[in-house]
């Protein structure tokens, strides 16, 4: 469930031998905790201990959700935020993976580009927002830019790390069997990079989502982040929580999709590299 959030691949499978009863136990306890917390939240508000103006309550959030989806008012905002995420993130993948492979493949290219990647990695890309608004405006273009910048760096770094993790072991063997460079690339480097790549893609997805949120909070005319800010100014806590839940759902959905895709690549993964 909760692999460590490192860029690496510490696949923490909690218990080495997972029996079915234990899995059931785990799900039961997990679900139970969530339900208990929701009830506690609802109860605290219902009993009048805390003003719902400050913390809302599950039932109030649910009412907003039903309202927003029922009337369809939320769709334009979801649409804008989704486009911002998808365009920026897909562009980051299209640029990041080839770039990571190239600097992993060529030592000199790595020396040339390394400092730029390190510098961009050291600064939160949302810092550039005042400039991005000036360069690209308040619409989706500036969000594409900040999402792209957020996601591309972890993807490049992870791909690069993946290529380097391969090198020593397999390439020499392949060379000694006089495999072509292309063959080495497709048969060894790419598959070996996959687990690293997915770590980068997941991390990049988080940064991309962050870019959408901060970009829209900073300056926007539409989007779920825009809705959250407006609701916040009106002290409409229910709608703020609803927006936060939408972002949470987006985060979970993206992670789940990437995990699924990654599992399909498992067969591809040469043994001994991933673990």
């Amino acid at each position: 469930m909760s692999a460590p959030m490192s860029m690496g691949l510490s696949k923490a499978r909690p218990m080495p031998s997972v029996r079915l009863s234990e899995r059931a136990q785990r799900q039961l306890v997990g679900a139970g905790t969530v339900v208990a917390l929701l009830l506690l939240w609802e109860g605290v508000v219902a009993s009048g201990l805390v003003d719902p103006l400050y913390i809302s309550s599950p039932s109030r959030i649910l009412r907003v959700a039903i309202d927003q989806f029922g009337s369809g008012a939320i769709w334009p905002d979801i649409r804008v935020s989704s486009i911002e995420f998808l365009v920026g993130y897909v562009a980051a993948i299209l640029v990041g993976i080839p770039l990571g492979l190239m600097i992993g493949w060529s030592r000199r290219l790595n020396y040339l580009l390394g400092p730029f990647i390190d510098i961009l990695n050291a600064v939160p890309r949302v810092t550039f927002l005042p400039l991005l608004i000036l360069w690209f405006g308040i619409g989706m273009n500036s969000k594409f830019a900040v999402v792209f910048m957020g996601a591309v760096i972890p993807i490049v770094i992870a791909t690069h790390a993946g290529v380097r993790a391969n090198e020593a072991r397999f390439i020499r063997v392949a060379r000694s069997f006089s495999a072509s460079e292309w063959k080495i690339m497709t048969a060894i480097i790419l598959p070996g990079t996959v687990p690293f790549l997915f770590a980068g893609l997941k991390y990049g997805a988080g940064r991309a989502l962050l870019g959408v949120v901060v970009g829209e909070i900073y300056a926007s005319t539409a989007g779920v982040g825009h809705m959250i800010v407006e609701a916040g100014n009106l002290f409409d806590t229910d709608t703020v929580f609803f927006g936060v839940l939408l972002f949470m759902a987006a985060g979970v959905a993206v992670t789940t999709i990437l995990n699924r895709i990654e599992r399909h690549f498992d067969a591809w993964r040469p043994r001994g590299l991933a673990q």
Binding site: S2, R26, T33, I228, F247
Partner: peptide
């Protein structure tokens, strides 16, 4: 087991959305 779902949810959420 109790905290795992909470951690996963927390991890998936961009916490900056809580800024307002």
């Amino acid at each position: 087991y109790a905290v795992e779902p909470l951690l996963a949810a927390l991890n998936a959420t961009p916490q900056v959305a809580l800024l307002p």
